[in-house]
């Protein structure tokens, strides 16, 4: 790990003033410290923001919706009873990510800033346009888990976040503070597709810091029919191969409004408004969900040896819509976001 200057400010103004080019904000550290060890990130200064006051609260807003401080830990947000009942797929997505230990450390703001899990990005020995603009991309011929939507010739990495997928579906708003004051960024504009500048991953300007995110009042309307589904190499503690957040507002047997976003298929969480429009006003059934999933993946193309991922994402979307239509479970499933229920086996009878 490269040497760095470490500071621990105790006020937001002090933290913002301490920022300089090459500095990094430290929240839970679960992603940053790891990448500092591989050398993929080499900040000259690490600004520990965990002592900043007032950023670890979950507040219900008078006008509806909720405001979540950037330093709320993933486990605290996921296990908040109010969040679980009003925004169930947010809780389910958080609990599907990482492990108990990592969720205890990882923060809400840090989750939005998560870097790609592309192995070629993490390894400084490999060529990566995202880490080192102009260096080339070693993932092109090797990476099976890469993007099938929104990728460019110079970067095919995906965003690994589970949490960001329901946030995109629910129109979350990111509150930011920076040298030029406060501003808000809609979730749809927060993460950037690679294009010719894969090193630009978010809409944040240099020196800006996420202070909170908000879920708007409308997001609560989906609580009865909202699920997150995550397909992975093993049942738990693995990043998604594909995932989907599906939410339906059902009135008199018809879908009044639908939300659908896909995860792990692009460099951003992938909201599919075309599919949502197709679902609206219809009676939920298998044929409708198949058409919606078809529309959701209509623009997908393999970026390497990963055509399988397009089909997997389509089927993930269909299953997530079916699960949402069946209703949000009264209790969080033992295996959150999993396509598998209780597994039979000797332990079940132990």
């Amino acid at each position: 790990m490269k040497r760095f200057e470490f500071i621990q400010p105790t006020s937001l103004d002090e933290a913002l003033a301490a920022w300089e080019p090459g500095a990094a904000w430290l929240g839970g550290g679960t992603n940053l410290v790891d990448l500092m060890k591989t050398g993929a990130m080499q900040p000259v200064k690490v600004i520990d923001i965990t002592r900043l006051p007032g950023l670890a609260e979950i507040e219900t807003l008078a006008e509806g919706g909720v405001r979540i401080g950037a330093l709320v830990r993933n486990s605290d947000l996921a296990n908040d009873a109010d969040i679980a009942s009003r925004f169930p797929m947010v809780s389910e997505a958080l609990l599907a990510g990482a492990s108990g230990q990592l969720r205890n450390a990882a923060t809400v703001g840090g989750n939005l800033m998560q870097r790609t899990r592309c192995a070629y990005f993490q390894d400084p020995q490999a060529a990566c346009n995202r880490r080192d603009p102009g260096a080339g991309c070693d993932a092109r011929e090797a990476g099976a888990g890469q993007a099938v939507l929104g990728w460019s010739e110079i970067c095919i990495a995906t965003n690994p976040s589970d949490f960001c997928v329901p946030l995109a579906a629910l129109d979350a708003i990111v509150e930011v503070r920076g040298p030029d004051g406060a501003r808000e960024i809609p979730m749809a504009e927060f993460h950037l597709l690679p294009g010719d500048t894969p090193e630009r991953e978010t809409a944040l300007s240099p020196g800006e810091l996420i202070v909170a995110l908000r879920l708007p009042p409308e997001a609560e309307g989906f609580a009865a029919n909202a699920r997150y589904l995550k397909v992975r190499d093993r049942t738990s503690y693995a990043f998604a191969m594909t995932s989907a957040a599906a939410a339906l507002r059902i009135e008199n047997g018809r879908i009044a409004e639908a939300r659908l976003a896909l995860g792990a298929v692009a460099a951003t969480p992938w909201r599919v408004t075309e599919a949502e429009a197709l679902l609206a006003g219809q009676t939920p059934d298998a044929a409708l969900f198949a058409r919606a999933a078809e529309a959701a993946l209509a623009g997908a193309t393999p970026s390497g040896d990963n055509a399988w991922k397009i089909d997997l994402a389509r089927r993930t979307a269909i299953r997530a819509l079916e699960m949402a239509a069946a209703g949000t479970p009264a209790q969080m499933p033992a295996l959150p976001a999993s396509p598998f229920g209780s597994t039979a086996g000797d332990l079940a009878h132990a």
Binding site: F6, Q8, L26, G29, V33, D34, V46, D48, S75, A105
Partner: peptide, 14 residues
């Protein structure tokens, strides 16, 4: 609370 000590910088723990 359980955490991974390998990803926790000691300097943050005062």
């Amino acid at each position: 609370r359980r955490v991974n000590s390998c990803l926790t910088l000691a300097a943050t723990l005062d």
